[in-house]
């Protein structure tokens, strides 16, 4: 679509008379017009990879949704445990990391005799967990900061438009959704409650691994950084 143009327009009669260059420019515009007029829009491939006639890059948004790429940072969600309550333990790490200061948390304590085992083990939970989506800059620092895999941005959607500012304040019930995350290391798979378990003394806790390295799945030793000078 590009064509050579001289550096000095006065050297070339095509450019100094202006008309041939105008015609070329109009030809480009007209070509784009006709191919977009008759071409079918291809919504499945990205614009730069399209092969068809139409190169229309925009979409009719609410009816058509863009396919967000892998790793897209979308609307936040609070990840539930497998019993449906949030995994969040109100540690405020996300609120601390948040550069927009859009996360508000109030912590509270589960009853020690809660009917759910996980709640008996991890006593702290967010009584209020609020994200102001208007303030959020979608940087994903909260996801990075979370030590409990309790907040993710894997909803593959953005904040939907609303009619009032208050609607953009997302409390727990709007955030808690999606599939539950289960990690074998979660403490509630290891004990019944936060009280002292019955004594099952094992020597296991005194067995120390080889010095200076840890075994990981790759089988290769991972050197450990030590700050000893």
């Amino acid at each position: 679509m590009s064509y050579p143009a001289s550096q000095n327009p006065h050297e070339d009669i095509r450019e100094s008379t202006y008309v041939p260059e105008l015609l070329k420019g109009m030809a480009i515009t007209a070509r784009v017009f006709w191919r977009n007029l008759f071409g079918e829009r291809d919504l499945t491939t990205r614009v730069v990879e399209r092969k068809g006639l139409s190169r229309v890059a925009t979409i009719a948004y609410p009816e058509e949704k863009p396919v967000y790429p892998e790793g897209y940072r979308g609307l936040h969600r609070l990840v539930p445990r497998d019993d449906g309550r949030p995994r969040c333990v109100a540690c405020y790490m996300c609120a601390t990391a948040c550069p927009a200061q859009c996360i508000y948390i109030e912590a509270a304590e589960y009853d020690p005799v809660d009917d759910l085992r996980a709640s008996r083990v991890i006593e702290k939970y967010p009584k209020a967990f609020v994200i102001d989506q208007l303030r959020c800059v979608v940087c994903g620092f909260c996801v990075e900061a979370c030590p409990k895999d309790a907040i993710r941005m894997d909803t593959f959607t953005h904040t939907p438009p609303e009619y009032s500012r208050q609607s953009f304040i997302y409390p727990v019930d709007k955030l808690l959704k999606g599939t539950a995350a289960v990690h074998p290391s979660d403490p509630w798979y290891r004990r019944e409650g936060s009280g002292e378990p019955a004594h099952v003394h094992k020597e296991a806790h005194t067995r120390i691994g080889p010095a200076g390295r840890v075994e990981v799945d790759t089988g290769k030793p991972v050197p450990v950084t030590r700050f000893l000078k």
């Binding site: 290891r190 936060s194 009280g195 094992k202 806790h205 067995r207 691994g209 840890v214």
Partner: peptide, 11 residues
């Protein structure tokens, strides 16, 4: 470097 579970006490 602990291998195996930790000692559990009242939390």
């Amino acid at each position: 470097r602990l291998e195996g579970p930790k000692v559990m006490k009242s939390k």
